[in-house]
């Protein structure tokens, strides 16, 4: 049996009192040893920052384990669940406090699974933020290899003083590569 999926709809302008919650963006407290910021700015097609977007990440643990731990909505401060949610601020920036995910298999490239919601965005968008550094793993990655070379960098987080920077451009030059999974 194959059913037709229910259509998505925009998250709209009024999600801020509903979807954000205390601790949503802190997968680990920022003071945790090894904690980094995964942060960036979300831009529209005119290059203007988007102050009403919502970013979610879902990631493996530093040792590459895929976790099935409850507690993302009521964080206890020590359980790493791998899920986080951050709304953009007035300047279009978002930031998570998290740990760098490890490769889920030997030789695999590590990445954050990322979902983007925004007013004006009629359905969610999926992308990946790859962890930089392991050139061999990145070169061997199937998805990256399938992307035109001049767009590949839109999927790579960039190391900086705070951790990793990952800007998201919904449209225009340097538009982020967004993903369509089979069955969508």
């Amino acid at each position: 049996m194959t059913l037709t999926p229910t259509p998505g709809q925009t998250v709209g302008p009024f999600f801020h009192y509903a979807l954000p919650y205390d601790g949503d963006r802190d997968l680990v407290p920022p003071s945790t040893p090894g904690a980094i910021a995964l942060h960036g700015t979300v831009y529209d097609g005119a290059g203007a920052p988007i102050p009403d977007a919502l970013i979610e990440i879902w990631q493996a643990a530093p040792d590459g384990t895929v976790l099935q731990q409850p507690g993302s909505l009521r964080r206890d401060g020590w359980t790493f669940t791998g899920f986080g949610r951050a709304s953009t601020r007035r300047d279009g920036t978002y930031a998570f406090s998290t740990l760098v995910p490890g490769p889920t298999e030997d030789g695999a490239a590590a990445f954050f699974a990322v979902t983007v919601f925004a007013r004006g965005l009629t359905n969610r968008l999926f992308t990946r933020a790859y962890v930089p550094g392991d050139e061999a793993a990145l070169a061997a990655d199937r998805l990256l290899a399938s992307v035109e070379e001049d767009r590949r960098s839109t999927l790579l987080a960039v190391a900086d003083a705070y951790g990793l920077r990952f800007d998201i451009r919904l449209q225009g030059e340097d538009e982020t590569v967004f993903l369509r999974f089979p069955g969508h």
Binding site: P101, A108, R142, L143
Partner: peptide
Amino acid sequence: HHADPETI
């Protein structure tokens, strides 16, 4: 861009 879902 077509992607086959992986791991996470």
